[in-house]
């Protein structure tokens, strides 16, 4: 159990292709490999490799995180040895544009819609359809899982977000 053979093998395959990722990927524990944040062009290249030749062809979920000035999107994938790879993409909050992975993994659809609604991500090539999970009439520009969005300023009855004037200016 402690040898982590499958994990080391999976990591070596990725590092062989992308030697400069040394130090950015680490084996966290048994069955878990995590990555530091990668910016878009590089992330897409790595993602394209790991989901094909890298063997990580099972998609589990995307986790959106607020990293201050950036948004992080952690794609959780697994291979046939049940090793989970959490590959993290980073995008600036001012323009959080990422590319949809739905063409490769159709089960990413709702996860990506969730990123749009809750984090304000701009997911390019996302298939058309209903929004998820926020209700109709949700005020535009309100992304509840961003840290600056405070639940106490939200009026649930009228569906309006009313931050105090001083704090509001800062957030605008």
């Amino acid at each position: 159990m402690s040898e982590l053979i499958a994990e080391k093998q999976a990591l070596a395959t990725i590092l062989e292709k992308f030697p400069f990722l040394e130090g950015k990927l680490e084996i966290q524990r048994r069955q878990r490999i995590i990555s530091s944040a990668l910016e878009r062009p590089l992330f897409e290249e790595v993602f394209g490799f790991v989901t094909t030749d890298g063997g990580f062809d099972n998609f589990h979920l995307v986790i959106g995180v607020d990293d201050g000035d950036n948004l992080g999107f952690i794609y959780v994938l697994s291979n046939d040895d049940k090793v989970m790879l959490s590959l993290k993409q980073s995008a600036p909050k001012s323009n959080p544009a990422i590319k949809s992975v739905c063409s490769v993994f159709p089960n990413a659809l709702w996860h990506e819609r969730e990123l749009v609604d809750l984090f304000g991500a701009i997911v390019e090539e996302l298939p058309e359809g209903p929004t998820y999970p926020l209700p109709d009439g949700w005020p535009a520009g309100n992304y509840p899982l961003r840290k600056e969005w405070k639940v106490e300023y939200f009026d649930k009855v009228n569906m309006t977000y009313n931050p105090p004037v001083t704090a509001g200016k800062e957030e605008e």
Binding site: P130, P133, P135, P144
Partner: peptide
């Protein structure tokens, strides 16, 4: 077409 989200309670934010 499957539509859900009617029961989203925002517990991750909570």
């Amino acid at each position: 077409v499957v539509g859900t989200g009617y029961n989203h309670r925002g517990l991750e934010k909570a």
